[in-house]
C-alpha cells in the first residue's frame, strides 16, 4: 500500500512539473493546482496511512494522526486562494499584454535593457 501511495504521489508530481514547465499561462496554472494536490497528499501521508481510524473521539479504538490533517485542511484552502489568484493574474495578463505566453523572450527582450 505504501509503495502504491508514494508512486502515485510521485507521478502526480511529475505530471504537474511537466505542466508548470509549459510556455502558456493556463497549463501552468493547472500544473500549480495539481502540484498543490500532490503536496497535500505528501504532507497528509506524514501522519502515515490509517484505514478506518478517523480522528473522531469515541468512534474507533485507534485514531489517524489528526495534526497533518489539520495542516492539510488549511493548505487546501490556501491552495484554492493561490489557484484563484494565479488564474486571475493570467487573465489579467492576457487582457493587458494580449498573449498568454509566460515568457517575454520574443516580444520585448531587446527593449528591456
Amino acid at each position: 500500500m505504501e509503495t502504491l501511495y508514494s508512486v502515485t504521489v510521485g507521478i502526480l508530481t511529475a505530471c504537474s512539473v511537466f505542466l508548470i514547465l509549459r510556455g502558456r499561462s493556463f497549463p501552468v496554472v493547472v500544473g500549480i493546482t495539481m502540484l498543490s494536490y500532490a503536496v497535500n497528499l505528501f504532507l497528509f501521508s506524514t501522519g502515515r496511512l490509517t484505514i478506518d481510524g478517523a480522528p473522531i473521539l469515541g468512534t474507533n479504538d485507534s485514531y489517524a494522526d489528526p495534526l497533518p490533517q489539520a495542516l492539510v485542511l488549511t493548505a487546501i484552502v490556501i491552495g484554492f486562494a493561490m489557484t484563484a489568484y494565479s488564474i486571475i493574474l493570467a487573465v489579467r495578463t492576457r487582457g493587458e499584454v494580449g498573449t498568454d505566453e509566460v515568457s517575454d523572450t520574443d516580444s520585448d527582450a531587446e527593449g528591456k535593457r
Binding site: E2, V9, G10, L12, T13, A14, R22, T46
Partner: peptide, 20 residues
C-alpha cells in the same frame, strides 16, 4: 521537461516512501 519532471517525481516518491 520530461526528464526534469521524472527526476522530481522520482525524488518525491522516494522521500514519501521513506517517510511512510
Amino acid at each position: 521537461d520530461i526528464i526534469i519532471a521524472s527526476f522530481i517525481g522520482g525524488i518525491v516518491a522516494t522521500l514519501n516512501f521513506a517517510i511512510l
